[in-house]
Design a protein around this nucleic acid. Structure first.
Length: 474
RNA sequence: CGGGGCGUGGCGCAGUCCGGUAGCGCACCUGCUUUGGGAGCAGGGUGUCGUAGGUUCGAAUCCUAUCGCCCCGACCA
């Protein structure tokens, strides 16, 4: 790793690829559209996964695992679902050297197999709700892959639940969505807009789809998580029935919700800068990197003594001591900046002599000289502050690029610059399609958070109950 | 599927037009000097030139076919 990252203003897409590569997060696998997640990238994902997993469990869900191979016929049982996913299925036709009697698909998502199993497990209303989650890989044969954002195989969690009635299912989708919002903002330091997808953007087979939407540094939107109210669509397709208290057999209501390794891409594109990655402390594989500086063995011993003291005093902080002898400090500074470590501690002979250490923040380069004990005492707070600072910085960035707009002519001129555009919409697919055809922008969501202002559609002039979020998206 | 690009030591590339038996930078190994913003010098190892066929005394280079990947668009978490 001795190269520089392409500046994001020069070529955002190249910047992104450079950061992924230079920070050693991932690289292309020999197969088109697939990626190898390298240890540093995987450690980042693990930190994200572990936090979200604990939140999923805290809201009453349990983990399970379903197989990757699904009978092709299962996908065909729900009409919209098969239509939505058929074009991007990877299909296994042979096994053990023989052609299979029935093709198997590599799961693009697991509704079908999970509800097939739920149907076996549910007899009575007393068996409901089922609140389940799985961490898995899924395959979608996308035409245009991009590391982390859209790979043929990706890692995710998918929550799947079954309920007695629509109210309970609806509440569940909201619980999941709120969990995602909290996770994005508190853990990833990514501010998100919560809302409902339009019919066009809805998940194949869902009654309603809710989402969290984030803004990347190039002003484009990224769907960061979705939560679907599936109604009885899948229950009917898979005969997921239960006998209710009143003695009648009824179809259950399902929900499903997921976030994926795409979130790694979101973290890169929300926080990064021209020097590379910037990681929020809560998910950074190394929260602090210690770079020791020394000439002689004697100096080295003195410096390491301080480094050891710091590490011993902060057992709960993820501290990495970069004691590689083959690199000079300057090289290490540059490398850890590319890798986005939130806080760097330099300890050199001069510092040892003064009883101090040097702390440098990655996101704003602020440098401080602190007595060793003060540094130790302040570090936990500093990490919290850095976490908040990143969220606030991202929020300010997004808010500056979020505009109310009423004129379609103006919208057409400006939307290419990036940003979110809050505009009135008449609620029709036709208008949505026209905007997309004219500008490549889509309705990211109908936001929950609205001031209740009514108006007229910027395109058709027909009445509109509220503004929706238009943007170009990944 | 359209448009563009690229396959040559581990990585990034030059060499291809004009055929002559493969080179540069980085990385790596050894030694010495270095270490507070990507160190220096000296020495050293590394290749079925994507694949197949053809032309030729001779092919990384010319011809034909083929495979793969990347980037930009249409489609998508």
């Amino acid at each position: 790793m001795a190269q520089k990252v392409t500046p994001m203003t020069q070529d955002f897409s190249k910047w992104y690829n450079d950061v992924v590569k230079m920070a050693e997060l991932a690289e292309h696998a020999p197969v088109k559209g697939c990626m190898v997640i390298r240890p540093y990238g995987y450690a980042l994902w693990e930190n994200m996964r572990d936090k979200l997993d604990s939140m999923i469990k805290a809201t009453g869900h349990v983990n399970a695992y379903f197989p990757m191979l699904i009978p092709e016929s299962f996908l065909q049982k729900e009409a919209e679902h098969v239509e939505g996913f058929a074009p991007e299925l990877a299909i296994v036709t042979h096994g053990g050297g023989k052609k299979l009697e029935e093709n198997l698909v590599l799961r693009p998502t697991s509704e079908t197999i999970i509800y097939h199993m739920f149907a076996k497990w549910v007899m009575s209303y007393r068996d409901l709700p089922i609140l389940m989650n799985q961490w898995a890989n899924v395959f979608r044969w996308e035409m245009r892959p991009r590391l982390f954002l859209r790979t043929l195989e990706f890692l995710w969690q998918e929550g799947h639940t079954a309920h007695r009635n629509e109210e309970e299912a609806e509440a569940e989708t909201q619980t999941a969505l709120e969990m995602y919002r909290e996770f994005a903002e508190d853990t990833l330091a990514i501010p998100v807009i919560t809302g409902e997808k339009t019919e066009t953007e809805r998940f194949a087979g869902a009654v309603r789809t809710y989402c969290i939407e984030a803004m990347m540094r190039d002003g484009k939107a990224l769907q960061a998580g979705t939560s679907h109210m599936l109604g009885q669509n899948f229950a009917k397709a898979f005969d997921l029935q239960f006998q209710d208290q009143d003695g009648e057999n009824k179809y259950a209501y399902n929900t499903s919700w997921g976030v994926s390794t795409r979130l790694v891409g979101a973290v890169i594109m929300v926080h990064g800068d021209d020097d590379g990655l910037i990681l929020p402390p809560k998910i950074a594989p190394h929260q602090i990197v210690i770079v020791p500086i020394y000439r002689s063995d004697e100096e080295r011993a003195l410096v390491m003594e301080v480094a050891d003291k710091v590490r011993a005093a902060l057992p709960d902080v993820r501290i990495h001591l970069d004691d590689r002898d083959q690199y000079k400090p300057g090289w290490k500074f540059a490398e850890w900046e590319q890798k986005g470590v939130p806080l760097r501690m330099e300890i050199g002979p001069k510092d040892v002599a003064k009883g101090q250490v040097v702390l440098t923040q990655r996101h704003d380069r602020e440098k401080e000289f602190l007595p060793i004990d003060d540094a130790i005492a302040q570090i936990p707070t500093k990490l919290d502050d850095l976490q908040k600072a990143l969220l606030e910085r991202a929020r300010a960035f997004r808010d500056e690029r979020t505009h109310k707009i009423d004129s379609y002519d103006e919208f057409k001129k400006r939307v290419g610059d990036g940003g979110f555009y809050l505009a009135h919409w008449d609620g029709t697919k036709e208008t949505e399609a026209k905007v997309k055809a004219d500008t490549k922008a889509t309705i990211r969501c109908i936001p929950f958070d609205t001031d209740g202002e009514e108006g007229v559609c910027m395109v058709s002039g027909k009445p509109s109950k509220q503004r929706v979020v238009f943007a170009r998206a990944y």
